[in-house]
Amino acid sequence: MHPEIDRFAHLDSWLHRLDPRWKLAAALVLVIAITLDRPSIRTDPRASRDLSAAAACLALSVGLLLGSSIPVGYALRKLAPAAGFLLLMVVFFPLVYESDTIRIGFLRISLTGLLVAAVILIKALAILLLVVVALGTTRFDRTMKALHRLRVPEPLVQIAMFAYRYLFVVFDQNRRMRQAMRARGFRPRTGLRSLRALSRGVGSLVVGSLERTRRIRDAMVARGYRGEYPSLAVFRTTPADVAALAGAVILSTVLLLWRFL
């Protein structure tokens, strides 16, 4: 169990108790429905319906977060980098759309663009929060094994598993390398010399990781590896799992029909 990635996977909530295969399937259904429900590019009554649909998606994700016992502060910290990136993307929408514009000083703001930006931002946050809840309530290695059972291609599952296992090893190497550089007077600056030293460090990390890949492959082959990663994971379906997936399907249907109601 990874102390950071699996930090809240040991808690006990109805979401924690779900079979990870069903939980992932339910999350996937909801994510697809939220993604398919596209906003209309108009400021008519349908647009306000888009906004309320997006808000409902976010409310659902927040509800699931509260039901999962994962601390809200932790989830927000996980969301913050992605939210910042999203904000950078949508901030220009009100400036580039040309319909329903109003003037604020020298800026011409499109109300349509503003609505579209708000809908995209809210829905993206709803999806991310859903993913945080789905992944945060199961140990990562169990999630990977569930994906394997759900017939996600073996190479993708193995890549994710090795990332889980070795990401922090590479982070540690990077930290030690930077310490060694600082111990010899290096201070990161924006100059060419500084960038050159940093790029050499990154290069040695990449080369080291490639070497490590070869050694890991040898270690796997030495224990009978033939391309498939075997697992002893046992999954059991309960009525709650089926109910969770059925709930996700019903909610997704309602969401997709919302604009026509």
């Binding site: 169990m1 990874h2 990562f140 290695d141 990977m144 598993m161 090795f162 889980y164 296992r165 070795y166 090893v169 490590r212 050694r215 890991i216 040898d218 270690a219 796997m220 030495a222 224990r223 009978g224 590896y225 033939r226 990663y229 075997p230 697992s231 002893l232």
Partner: peptide, 23 residues
């Protein structure tokens, strides 16, 4: 292997020890 970090490639110790017998 000399480098244990490379020999223990699974997410948990249990998975790693089970890897050989399962294969």
């Amino acid at each position: 292997f000399q480098q244990t970090e490379d020999q223990l490639f699974s997410p948990t110790v249990f998975d790693d020890v089970a890897f050989g017998p399962l294969n």
